[in-house]
Nucleic acid binder design. Structure first.
Lengths: 137, 137
DNA sequence: TATGAAAGACTAACTAA
DNA sequence: TTAGTTAGTCTTTCATA
């Protein structure tokens, strides 16, 4: 991992469809070098996957979930990730323990998700923040 | 947005490099239809962007930043997104106002980021959570 | 690091609903 | 009028030297 790798990653993060030739021009190297490095980064799983960022609904939010102490976080996370509106589930350090990143049609749908989460016995409490604006690094 | 769109999105979310011909086979339509729909979804910003999921370091974290009331959030967010270790900057509702999603070499680097954030006058306080485990929906 | 071959995407003209 | 198809062309990627 050197600065050239980091530059390539940053370009791909903004637009993963940028042609290798264009990336090469931008970072001042050849198409082959960019291709080899992207292959290596993918191999090493520094690039976990090529994907799309979607906004199927109008509201994105973080739902922080406080979980009972003696609960299997992992099983709970597995359950949440099955919910259609959930993009990511993070198990985190700190008080709230599990964070959902969700993409909903409207705030009503966010509310439904919170209600569904709170209905589970393992869930002690929730804290929700709407994501008003996102910037990509 | 119909079921065909949703199928296409789900394939692209798993691997955004899947050729249109292959997606077409999988969902039972022609290459042209897949291409037209992906273009439409991109146009409508349901697909926000083609991107990569990366893990350059060993530690991912959420840094929640409490911002002084009369501060221009947008300018602050613009500054944070320039930091190399920052993947996303979210302006959120609630007390902390700005959330950074960071990808660092180690916890020391996370700590450096927190220090740099706290050095800014606009920043009143921070709260950090390490992301211990991530699931993708 | 070039260069030709292969794979994939795009254009545009056409068809069907 | 809109969505879908297809053949031909162009672009990008890949493998080889």
């Amino acid at each position: 991992m050197d600065d050239l790798d980091r530059e390539i990653l940053s370009i791909l993060r903004r637009d993963a469809r940028t042609p290798y030739t264009e990336i090469a021009d931008e970072v001042g190297t050849s198409e082959g070098t960019v291709r080899n490095r992207v292959e290596r980064l993918t191999e090493e799983e520094i690039i976990e996957r090529f994907t799309i960022a979607t906004q199927t609904g109008n509201v994105k939010a973080m739902i922080e979930i406080e979980v009972d102490v003696d609960v299997d976080h992992s099983a709970l996370a597995d359950a949440f990730v099955e919910w259609a509106e959930v993009d990511f589930v993070w198990e985190v350090s700190g008080e709230e323990d599990v964070v959902l990143i969700v993409d909903c049609a409207d705030t009503g749908e966010v509310n439904d998700l919170i209600t569904r989460a709170r209905e589970r016995d393992e869930v002690m409490g929730t804290k929700t923040r709407l994501i008003l604006e996102e910037r990509v690094g």
